[in-house]
Design a protein around this nucleic acid. Structure first.
Lengths: 152, 152
DNA sequence: TATTGTTATACTCTATAACTATA
DNA sequence: TATAGTTATAGAGTATAACAATA
């Protein structure tokens, strides 16, 4: 197996592990997978329009309405009106939402317990780089397909 | 933000990107997300018992039956009998299944196009390490919850 | 008795499409 | 006209639970 294939296989394993992580953590905090993804997205990107959230997660506007309804009912997030565009809704994490984020932060940070500061400082940009490239490649595929999986 | 928090935030971004990758690639090859996960799992771990596959993906035995039915109908995978235990079924990728894997390999390897051999040789074990630690943490959480999200 | 897989049923979540309100 | 969000409906995928076959 050549070097690139080895990296690809490692990335496959990481992606499968990430998906399992999502399922386990979501169950742990009593949320569905999509709800947990939404919390994660809101924690990374901050409060944002309901449509932007829908685009992030690849949901239609109707599914986003149902999703935010569920998050509000559980006290995880809340809608507030956009400052000047009365069509739009801003979705923000509540205190309980931030608590869920904090719980997952503790959970994830344990991954790095036995890494040195030096290792961490080199690892973080690498992970970010892979994430950015994955995002770029997704956009390329969507463009070449002349279609987007993002439905909003 | 301290060093660990930075790594956690990068990992969050990577996980979200991985989930989006799964949705985009699955749509690209005409599969559902769970079906694509199954193909990936079969490509990483090789042909395996239907129950093992169910455990990998966190599905009940009933959902696994439906999943493998779909994969067979699409010619992606096929069941074959276990050598000596007639209760069990082995699930293997077909030629067309391997073709899908190859398609995603090309797709993923483009991520590493502008990395040097040296960088790749250092990156692959890091990714594998994060994947392994994620897997370990999942098992720990499941153990501490006294419960498993894996339903098979 | 325990395990593997199947089946029937109900439920959850999402896509689709038509709609309202606002820009 | 175009955009953001809602609603109603139908469909896909899954959990649950009861079951058959095998160990």
């Amino acid at each position: 197996m050549d070097t690139t294939d080895d990296a690809v296989q490692s990335l496959r394993s990481l992606i499968l592990a990430a998906e399992r992580y999502r399922a386990v953590l979501a169950a742990h905090v009593g949320l569905g997978v999509t709800e947990a993804q939404a919390v994660s997205s809101l924690s990374v990107h901050g409060g944002r329009g309901q449509k932007e959230l829908a685009v992030d997660l690849g949901l239609t506007s109707g599914a986003a309405t149902a999703l935010v309804d569920r998050l509000e009912k559980q006290g995880i997030a809340q809608r507030s009106p956009h400052a000047w565009d009365r069509r739009r809704t801003i979705v923000r994490l509540t205190a309980r939402g931030h608590q869920v984020v904090e719980e997952s932060r503790v959970w994830l940070s344990a991954l790095f317990n036995d890494a040195t500061e030096d290792e961490l400082e080199r690892l973080a940009p690498l992970l970010r780089g892979v994430a950015d490239r994955l995002g770029d490649r997704c956009r390329e595929i969507e463009a070449s397909d002349g279609w987007s999986y993002r439905r909003a």
